[in-house]
Design a protein around this nucleic acid. Structure first.
Lengths: 195, 195
DNA sequence: AAAAAAAGAATGAACGTTCATTTTTGTCTA
DNA sequence: TAGACAAAAATGAACGTTCATTCTTTTTTT
């Protein structure tokens, strides 16, 4: 067990270093040698855990995406009403983007860049399924606008990415009240009018 | 004039090649030699027009950003009402993101990556000023929600970036009706309630 | 024919990856 | 239980390649 434990620690250190360095310098400007140094490991050791640099960054993406969605759905269960369920998920997503912004920034970079290969991007999308299922239910119940889930996501969730980046750049600071207001705006955007 | 003309053509070809290659491969995977080849120019020639690779990509960013905002404000003038002005600008932004998506994708990558240096990012932001001015006027007139311009942008404009990327990835297709609906959603998000 | 622009080849540095070797871990034997 | 030994893990140095940039020469322009 000691052996396995040690390995997992190193793997985690490599993933952590990758996130931090890619966030600060971008994929192109983070050499394997720097990742190794930050993880306190020899460059050669990386290749015991990952096939190559692309594999390292793909796996990092998938792990961070899983972390994101675990976080988002932590307080949610399917017996909730559509409205409560959405509020629960949305607020967790907001919390993640604003508190765990190292991870959120990394995802934003991956999602706007040809950094990650297609299969890994596909893999990452799967994790959002519970939110899509909730919306489908909402549409059937006549509570949610009968439009594509892409539109719902764009209206209600994607603004949080913009706010996270503006906040991270120090442009302004979000407080509790603004988050509540942003939530109301998100819900208004996706709920069926005048129910 | 012939000399200058020729130079501008080459410069434009270099900028165009940079956009296309960075879009497809990312900054890290587009060597100067490929940019040169696509622009039908020797690698050494690039250095007659730009200081170095970073300068090339910075200048490309600023040019594309200027193109974006010129496009966005083309039909707008300050004598319009707040509501009409916003609709005019918003629809042009939508058009740009969906039709000129090569340029829009490039901007998205720049804005989510440490690819562009800080001064050039700052330079690029300036161009949005007319929209911010319009919002300030709207707040004074009691038409627009009295909240930070960052929030207004997040609610009303940033969803378009998400939709552009989804569309570009072939995930789904936006039609006229959905754009109109997205506009209504955007306007609802920023207008002061129940005026 | 001088000056400017452009070209291709050359250069040196940096990078991803691999190789040969050492260190650590875990197991088996006496 | 001590010690030997095989397997696994880890390492630092080395390799070959690629890249941004520069140098020298050629072509074009005026």
């Amino acid at each position: 067990m000691a052996k396995l434990q040690k390995s997992i620690d190193k793997r985690n250190a490599l993933i952590k270093a990758t996130i931090e360095l890619v966030n600060n310098n971008g994929f192109h400007a983070t050499p394997m040698s720097k990742i190794a140094k930050m993880a306190k490991v020899s460059p050669a050791t990386i290749y015991l855990y990952f096939e190559n640099k692309q594999d390292l960054v793909n796996k990092t993406y998938i792990e961070v995406k899983a972390k994101y969605t675990d976080y988002a759905f932590a307080n949610y269960n399917e017996s909730m009403s559509v409205k409560t369920g959405f509020e629960t998920i949305w607020k967790r997503i907001a919390e993640f983007k604003l508190n765990e912004y190292e991870h959120a920034m990394f995802l934003a970079q991956c999602d706007n860049t040809p950094m990650i290969d297609e299969p890994s991007l596909k893999e990452g999308i799967k994790h959002l399924q519970p939110l899509l299922d909730l919306w489908e239910r909402g549409k059937q119940e006549g509570i949610i606008k009968p439009v594509s889930n892409y539109l719902l996501y764009a209206y209600a969730v994607s603004p949080l990415s913009f706010l996270m980046i503006a906040q991270k750049r120090g442009a302004f600071q979000l407080d509790k009240e603004q988050i509540e207001e942003a939530y109301q705006s998100a819900w208004s955007s996706i709920k069926k009018c005048e129910q």
